[in-house]
Computed example of a mutant assay.
Amino acid sequence: MTLTKKDIRKTYLARRLALGEEETASLNAALLDQCRTLDLGTPTFVHLFLPIAAKREVDTYPVADWLRAAYPGVQLVLSRSYLATGNMQHFRWDDQTRLVENAWGIPEPVSGRIVAPKDIDVVFVPMLAFDSAGHRVGYGKGMYDEFLRQCREDVRSIGLSLFPPLPGLIEDAYDGDVPMDTIVTPEQIYYFSAYK
Rank of each mutant, 00 (worst) to 15 (best):
S161K: 00
L40N: 03
I120V: 15
P107I: 05
Y174A: 12
R68D: 08
T97I: 12
R80T: 00
Q96E: 15
W66A: 06
D154H: 13
R36L: 08
C151Y: 03
P43N: 03
E23I: 09
Y174W: 11
D131Q: 01
D33Y: 06
A53M: 13
P186I: 08
L166V: 07
I170F: 02
D121G: 12
D175S: 10
V137Q: 03
D145F: 14
G20Q: 05
T44D: 03
V100R: 13
D119C: 11
W93K: 00
E146W: 14
R9G: 03
T42I: 05
I170A: 02
V58R: 02
R68Q: 11
H135V: 07
K6R: 14
V77E: 05
D39Q: 14
E57G: 00
R16E: 08
A129K: 00
R68I: 02
S26I: 12
L166S: 04
L99P: 09
P179Q: 07
S157Q: 03
Y82I: 14
V184I: 10
E21T: 02
G134L: 00
R113L: 10
A54H: 07
V110D: 11
Y71K: 01
R15L: 13
N28D: 05
Y195D: 12
I106Q: 02
I52H: 14
G73V: 14
F130P: 00
C151A: 13
D59K: 06
V123M: 12
F147Q: 06
A173P: 07
N28W: 01
A133V: 05
L166N: 04
E187V: 07
S193I: 14
A70L: 11
Y139V: 12
V58L: 05
S111T: 13
D65T: 15
P186E: 06
V122T: 11
R36S: 08
F45L: 03
Y190W: 09
Y139K: 08
A14S: 15
G134S: 06
G41F: 07
A84Y: 15
D177R: 09
Y71N: 04
D172H: 06
T37Y: 13
R9M: 02
G159I: 01
A25I: 00
L13H: 08
G159R: 09
R16A: 10
K196V: 12
L78V: 08
A129L: 01
E171K: 02
A64T: 05
